[in-house]
Design a protein around this nucleic acid. Structure first.
Length: 588
RNA sequence: GCGCUCGUAGCUCAGCUGGAUUAGAGCGAGUGCCUUCUAAGCACUAGGUCGGAGGUUCGAGUCCUCCCGAGCGCGCCA
């Protein structure tokens, strides 16, 4: 159990004793770390929250609760403050015990089983298979990947999914472009790529590949539609190979790739629409013209199959079928989400780019309609990424085909730096990504700062062996092992800087659970930076005063105690870095 | 026109989903600290009417309304 939660439990027990069972649970009691350390290790507003319910003066109630807290053996001081806050500090022994538990528990102390094996489906990336991934996609990819990992560590059964939009107009366009590129590869002068097709250079190699395998892929197809279908399948497969290569380079993995086309061919759309019909949620009707500044010129009112999205809070009913009889994107997508829902995922998470925000009410209303409001869908919107170099924006023009591909960025800055940087901002905020900063070895580069702390800790663990050669150590890394500090007398850790590091370490569950709640991994990178800062601070104390160093040759016991803290810090940093898909550095 | 997101120090951003006694970091600017475990660091100083105006509340950067500004979006595209 986390230290925070344990504090809340103390309060809960005290409340039960005083007021009986009708009090907030430990999970509901807010326990915070005050901004200023001098106000205490923890604080709570519970007296303010409860004052009305129990008809007490908040200040008076806080004082009484503080008195009860102070009587607890792990709590050193507790007092009421302000309008009714309670501040308290733990005893040195309690902090030392916290560290001891962290060391004993390996890294499991950070996580608890909140998911209890429940199934959650995380759909992310799902970039259209018409071109390579960009840095923008990478943000969503890493976000989804880390959220999936975090959910898994907290006990959920996670399925990681990629939805391939391999049906619809864009795929026809792709096929036409590829067939043209094939003719170009065969020596024909195709001139400019006509308007309406994809002009990007990245499709050239696929045209060449198609020319090489023309007989095998297109065979003797004379029918233009059959040729198109074959070319499309060929191009999608090639592009998806590239996408998967980029994802692999990023360290991002999916369990399932679901094809829109395959779902449609299997009748998923008809099934979904049948469900809606049963509930009287589809009808034939005519829509109002779209409300854009300049409505499409070719717009004209038509009778079509519509879904009553307005009944679920959407601003307008939505078409399911085009005039040529094809299903709309929404029809396919609702069928897909219904499919995910019926695959028994109790929770669905979609990671989407900011350019899809307008579509959220549509899909949420569609899924609510299909699932009888039973589906639990959360959509994490990921704002756009601006790529900079030396503070100047690098243009990402897909038209020119000269846009910054994910592959090129990973090559330039490395997987770890890219992952960490893209995780430092909350998803809902736009992100500037400066290629020249992430390779810098300084504080400007937050990953470096954290890696430096990790490497410093590793360095101390190696050097300990020089002073104390008999300490158990790992021959390959040269670092002392846990066995060396297992019996350390942690009561020797009483310095402020040391307690600070323990406190930061112990707050890891807070950062991780906040990520889980808000689906915002930047809280994890923030925690890493805080822990790194505490550690750098503690390190520095040893520069001012030799007796404050981790390794004090004349005092074996003190050294062991401090090395225990160094080891715990190193493992905490390492564990959480790895959770983010970043490899901790043993040296820099 | 409408919807969503964002607006916090010169710059880039946190602010734990309503808490206080001084709104926090980093960069940039200024000062100090290496015969000492990595100075790739640490400590300190300067810098903010939290876009603006109302409102709800014991209590608002956080919630509500309106306004201003930026980004993204609005279809028988996906």
């Amino acid at each position: 159990m986390s230290l925070h939660l344990r504090q809340a439990e103390r309060l809960h027990e005290i409340l039960v004793r005083r007021f009986g069972a009708e009090v907030p649970s430990a999970e509901q009691i807010l326990v915070e770390v005050p901004r200023e350390r001098k106000f205490g290790d923890f604080s709570s507003n519970i007296a303010l929250v409860l004052a009305k319910q129990v008809k007490a003066n908040p200040r008076q109630l806080a004082a009484e609760l503080a008195e009860d807290l102070a009587a607890t053996d792990t709590i050193a001081t507790a007092s009421a403050a302000g309008p009714g806050f309670i501040n308290w500090t733990l005893t040195d022994a309690a902090w030392q015990k916290t560290l001891a538990e962290i060391i004993q528990a390996d890294s499991n102390w950070i996580f608890r089983d909140l998911g209890q094996g429940k199934a959650v489906n995380v759909e992310f990336v799902s970039a259209n298979p018409t071109g390579p991934l960009t840095v923008g996609h990478a943000r969503g990819a890493i976000l989804g990947d880390v959220l999936a990992d975090v959910l898994q560590r907290f006990g959920w059964k996670v399925e990681r999914e990629y939805y391939i939009n391999d049906a619809g107009n864009q795929i026809d366009t792709l096929a036409d472009t590829i067939l043209l590129r094939m003719r170009e590869a065969e020596g024909e002068d195709i001139g400019e790529i006509p308007r309406g097709l994809y002009p990007g250079e990245y499709l050239k190699p696929i045209g060449v590949a198609l020319a090489e395998q023309k007989d095998k892929v297109l065979g003797t197809c004379a029918d233009p539609e059959a040729r198109r279908t074959a070319a499309a399948a060929f191009a999608v497969e090639k592009i998806m190979q590239g996408v998967q290569a980029d994802l692999t380079a990023l360290g991002v993995r999916h369990d399932v790739f679901t094809s829109d086309k395959a779902l449609r061919e299997a009748g998923a759309v008809e099934r979904a629409i049948a469900v809606l019909k049963e509930r009287d949620l589809v009808y034939r009707g005519v829509l109002e013209p779209p409300k854009g500044e300049d409505p499409p010129e070719d717009w004209e009112p038509r009778q079509q199959l519509l879904f009553r999205a307005t009944q679920f809070g959407d601003e307008s009913d939505r078409p399911l079928q085009r005039s040529n009889g094809d299903w709309t994107y929404l029809a396919g997508d609702m069928a897909y989400h219904y499919d995910k829902f019926t695959r028994s995922a109790e929770k669905l998470i979609n990671v989407w780019g900011a350019d899809h925000v307008g579509y959220i009410p549509r899909i949420t209303s569609a899924l609510a309609a299909l699932s009888d409001s039973k589906a639990n869908l959360r959509i994490v919107v990921c704002q756009l990424v601006r790529v900079l170099r030396d503070g100047r924006e690098v243009r990402m023009s897909k038209r020119e085909g000269s846009f910054v591909t994910l592959g090129s960025v990973v090559e330039e800055v490395g997987r770890d730096a890219l992952r960490f940087m893209l995780l430092t901002r909350k998803p809902s905020a736009p992100l500037d990504f400066d290629l020249s900063v992430v390779v810098k070895q300084s504080l400007e580069n937050p990953l470096f700062y954290v890696q430096y702390a990790h490497a410093r800790a590793c360095s101390v663990l190696r050097l300990a062996v020089e002073t104390f050669p008999d300490m158990p150590h790992d021959p390959s890394s040269g670092e002392i092992t846990k066995a060396a500090v297992q019996t350390a007398d942690l009561s020797l850790l009483t310095a402020d800087a040391e307690r600070e590091v323990i406190a930061t370490l112990a707050s890891a569950p807070q950062a991780l659970e906040a990520t889980l709640r808000a689906l915002e991994p930047h809280r994890i990178t923030a925690w890493l930076r805080t822990l790194a800062a505490s550690f750098h601070g503690m390190w520095q104390a040893g520069r001012a005063d030799e007796n404050s160093r981790f390794i004090v040759a004349s005092d074996r016991s003190l050294s062991e105690a401090r090395l225990a803290l160094v080891l715990a810090t190193r493992d905490g940093l390492g564990e959480v870095l790895r959770l983010l898909g970043v490899t901790p550095a043993d040296r820099l």
